[in-house]
């Protein structure tokens, strides 16, 4: 049976495809401002913090993805606060929060005597460990977050391009920064279910980097990045099902291949940038 037949036959695979496609669209959109503001590593940081949340959830018997969402958003807000207050330079704050978050996760896991099978699914992503609850949480949340991004589009553009100018025009820049951080942290946690905590940040960075190779306007950059993310998720999941690969690895490799293709096409003058 081919991957295509499996997707046609199993409703769950279709839902998983829909959920991961939506997550990829969201990550693609958010990735562009993140990369342009040289905050690429933030996604990686959030993913590590979410490990503490997942461990806490598994340990205390909460819904792990929910616990991860709460813990990661709190950690992300702490990072944003340190960044905006100038308590620490951007990447030092990041390094501290990331390590403390991850260490917290490690300690909780050791307290619990380890729950390796479940944790593996979160660390590396899995199609088959994903529950119906996960998918039914992801789909509405992803749609809601995409809606929020669309509502904040012009503000996000302004803050990305010129933070001081945005402040001068009367925009509440602090609030917008916090909203973007919360959006990003939520996206990381939800997308990590498929892609895995260790790889999820690349879903933010690689499609955006692909788009920036060719985009001639901000709007086009966002759209191309969303499409690149979506195509990577689709191709990756099909390959994962067809050849029994880890879905996270397959999706990220697909995104990487797409980047090489586009960057190469640009370099050899096939597309103009």
């Amino acid at each position: 049976m081919t991957a295509f037949d499996l997707f046609v036959q199993y409703e769950f695979l279709q839902l998983a495809l829909l959920a991961s496609g939506l997550m990829a669209l969201l990550a693609g959109a958010l990735g562009v401002p993140l990369v342009l503001r040289e905050m690429s590593m933030f996604g990686h940081g959030f993913a590590h913090v979410s490990y503490a949340g997942v461990a806490l959830g598994l340990f205390a018997g909460f819904y792990p993805l929910g616990a991860a969402l709460v813990v990661t958003v709190i950690g992300a807000l702490a990072m944003e606060w340190m960044r905006s207050e100038g308590v620490l330079k951007g990447d030092t704050a990041l390094a501290i929060v990331v390590s403390v978050g991850f260490a917290l996760g490690v300690v909780i896991v050791s307290l619990a005597g380890g729950f390796t099978a479940d944790l593996g699914g979160y660390l590396f992503g899995s199609l088959f460990a994903v529950t119906r609850t996960d998918v039914f949480l992801m789909i509405p949340v992803a749609v809601g977050l995409l809606g929020l991004f669309a509502l904040l589009y012009k503000e996000i553009f302004y803050v990305t391009f010129d933070e001081e100018g945005a402040r001068l025009s009367g925009l509440p820049v602090g609030v917008i920064n916090v909203l973007v951080i919360v959006l990003t942290a939520s996206t990381i946690v939800l997308a990590s279910r498929f892609v895995g905590l260790l790889l999820v940040a690349s879903l933010l960075v690689i499609p955006a980097a692909t788009a920036l190779q060719v985009a001639r306007s901000f709007r086009v950059a966002i759209v191309v990045s969303m499409v690149a993310g979506f195509v990577s998720a689709l191709v990756g999941l099909f390959l994962a099902v067809e050849f029994s690969l880890a879905p996270g690895g397959a999706i990220v490799l697909a995104a990487g291949a797409l980047f090489v293709l586009v960057a190469g096409a640009r370099r050899w003058g096939v597309v103009e940038a």
Partner: peptide, 16 residues
């Protein structure tokens, strides 16, 4: 390298 067209920059003047 920032992807923004001239029209998009001018539009930022309308944000307020």
């Amino acid at each position: 390298k920032f992807p923004a067209s001239a029209l998009e920059i001018a539009l930022l003047g309308r944000v307020a």
